[in-house]
């Protein structure tokens, strides 16, 4: 069944996705993306590992989930091929993906998201959501393995990209756009901290009250998380340690409140 009959072509969001599907119909050397046959709001994509990095030679496949409000809301990207930089089967955290909708611009597109993804792969993971910090060697091994990786829907993904050296013509403005997206990730980290601080007061009082009532469980929960903190600290540079540490502390506080609250409900 063709997509044309299934959707309201008058809807600007549908028009926009049709337009993007036409624009991206031809695979380039770096990326290829297409909507699923039966769903215009779910796409599959393949990107080539950026050259001169530990991802060189790799092919990475994934899903793009488009919200019904697209392009007002950002697309979500989910990687399916093991790559050592992003967790698979998890919405990943670029500053233009769904985790930070406030920085998404409707004038960006799926192509922008893919270019940003490629540009982002070699950047440090820095403990962001869905990021992995594998060694270059491990990533190289995964890159080699990815050549034989198959998608149930799209088949062998290494064959979906154009093999001719047909450049995707990244315009100057796009190049600066991608840079701008990368910069935004840092700003978002600051903002995250601010919003965490705002929550401070109310959360803290809650935690104090509840922790005194239910101390044992709070302690047991604390242990595994501290391990996680140690790991992240090792992997990131000193200037971001404080920020990340603050964020992690508040994540823990939040989680404890949640769990204790949950436990209360379960007991009752």
């Amino acid at each position: 069944m063709s997509l044309e009959n299934k959707y309201n072509l008058k809807s600007p969001g549908v028009k926009r996705l049709m337009r993007e599907a036409r624009e991206l119909a031809e695979p380039t050397e770096e990326y290829f993306a297409h909507p699923l046959e039966d769903n215009l709001f779910e796409w599959h994509f393949t990107v080539r590992g950026p050259p001169s990095t530990e991802f060189e030679g790799g092919f990475y496949h994934g899903r793009i989930l488009l919200p019904s409000q697209y392009p007002m809301q950002p697309p979500n990207i989910i990687l399916l091929t093991p790559n050592g930089r992003f967790e698979v089967n998890k919405k990943i955290c670029l500053s233009i993906s769904g985790h930070h909708p406030e920085s998404w611009q409707p004038s960006w597109s799926i192509r922008t998201a893919l270019l940003a993804l490629i540009a982002f792969m070699p950047t440090p993971a820095a403990g962001t959501i869905g990021s992995l910090d594998y060694t270059p060697e491990e990533r190289q091994i995964l890159a080699k393995k990815s050549i034989n990786w198959e998608c149930q829907i799209c088949g062998k993904i290494a064959e979906t990209l154009s093999s001719q050296s047909k450049s995707s013509n990244i315009t100057q403005e796009e190049a600066s756009l991608i840079q701008q997206i990368a910069l935004k990730a840092e700003e978002d980290a600051n903002r995250k901290e601010k919003s965490a601080d705002k929550k401070e007061d109310s959360d803290e009082t809650n935690v104090r009250q509840r922790v005194t009532i239910n101390t044992p469980s709070a302690e047991t929960i604390n242990e595994p998380i501290t391990d996680v903190i140690m790991e992240t600290e090792v992997s990131i540079n000193p200037s971001t340690v404080d920020q990340v540490f603050n964020v992690v502390v508040w994540v823990i506080v939040f989680v404890i409140v949640l769990l204790i609250g949950r436990r209360f409900f379960l007991l009752e």
Partner: peptide, 16 residues
């Protein structure tokens, strides 16, 4: 189950 959850829950996501 509930003590396995911490790694899944993320404050950022909850706020959003």
């Amino acid at each position: 189950n509930s003590s396995e959850e911490p790694s899944q829950v993320n404050q950022d996501e909850l706020i959003l």
